[in-house]
């Protein structure tokens, strides 16, 4: 029984000039193999122009249980949205 190849998370930039987006994961012995495997698994139909891979273990995620306290500070700051400020209709370009 050999050890399992490490798991890598795969991020792909689609052709439309967007940011890299998480698409799934692959197993591979090293980063180069992870990119080649990601190409075969996630871009068989020209879905991307660039691939990032990162060891799954290196990704740190916020905890769903702390969603409340984590995001709460922005909840009461509605003035961060431009719609908070009513503008007179006759004033333009604001």
């Amino acid at each position: 029984m050999t050890a399992e190849w490490p798991l890598w998370e795969v991020f792909i930039r689609s052709q439309h000039g967007l940011a890299h987006k998480h698409v799934g994961s692959v197993h591979a012995a090293d980063a180069g193999m992870a990119i080649r495997n990601a190409r075969d698994v996630y871009t068989r139909r020209n879905e991307g122009v660039s691939i990032w891979v990162a060891r799954s273990g290196d990704i740190h995620a916020s905890s769903p249980g702390e969603r409340g306290p984590l995001f709460e500070p922005s909840n009461d700051k509605v003035y961060r949205h431009p719609t908070f400020f009513p503008m007179p209709e006759e004033v333009k370009h604001l």
């Binding site: 050999t2 050890a3 190849w5 012995a29 090293d30 193999m33």
Partner: peptide, 8 residues
């Protein structure tokens, strides 16, 4: 699988 890991 073993060889690829050793190589890595």
């Amino acid at each position: 699988r073993e060889a690829a890991l050793a190589h890595a």
